[in-house]
Amino acid sequence: MENQLAVTNVPFSVRFMRAWRRDKLLWLLITPGLLFVLVFAYFPMYGLVIAFQNFSPYKGIGGSTWVGFAHFQDFFQSSDFWRLIKNTVLISLYTLIFGFPIPILLAIVLNEINTKWFKRVVQTVSYLPYFISVVVVCGMIKDFLNPSTGVINHFIELLGGEPIYFLTRPEYFKPIYVISQIWQTMGWNSIIYLAAVAGIDQGLYEAATIDGASRIKMIWHITLPSILPTVSIMLIMNMGSILSVGYEKIILLYNDATLSSADVISTYVYRRGLVQAEYSFGAAVGLFQNVINFTLVVAANYIVRHLTESSLW
């Protein structure tokens, strides 16, 4: 403390030189990483100016003509706009509604298991799908749902039903996406709740046991209230990313027949911007999505900070 007070009396230039001499090596160490971030994260942000141009790769950013908000207007007025918003929000919401409670339930249930080896085996197995690549997961989905050879349709036939062409029917796309998403992430997402549950004061449970409380009562009155802060943080953070549905799985699973219910903003950017090489239009749609995401995430972080007095950073 005394040191800091003394420092403020010294002129800025002297302080600067002192800091520089002291930090020289640290600057040397951090430069490569900083350079990477500037080039691969900040330069593309500057590159977003092409959203306001008719960018041509031959003319470059300097030589391309400016068109203002024309691409944004095109996007907002296109028939795709509401379909994309609807699909993106719905896929996020379904994932949230059905996928969010399961890891919490899993953590609470695992906490009730007293057989150590059993608990460990279940945990290990439940994290496994998280490490399987999205291509393999989609390959499995395609195999399992195949109308003539897939195990699910064999099962339907066994029950006397007709095989269903799951992947060419728009109404099945969102359920397939959400269920496979839950399958892949439920175990992994439970880790954070398990940690929260493990942090609960065991004395509370002992006291409750003496008072004759049942297990379910204890979960309701001790476990759930104790992990509520973690739950609400996770919920808010999830709400913040409601408009950022990943493109990878959708690109692998959708086709012309399911486009109406599968196409989200990020896949649209990929298809129009890269596959059809409409760089400026794609960049404009991407920018629209990023601005909304940014706003939502900052808002989420703000709410979390006020709830917990501790920000993310």
């Binding site: 971030v37 691969f40 994260a41 990929y270 995430v297």
Partner: peptide, 22 residues
């Protein structure tokens, strides 16, 4: 300041197309 510069990239990015062009 450097922490801030780094953290900002987690909230906002140029997106697929500008990165591709880069």
């Amino acid at each position: 300041p450097i922490s801030l510069i780094l953290a900002f990239t987690m909230f906002f990015s140029g997106g697929t197309i500008p990165l591709y062009l880069l």
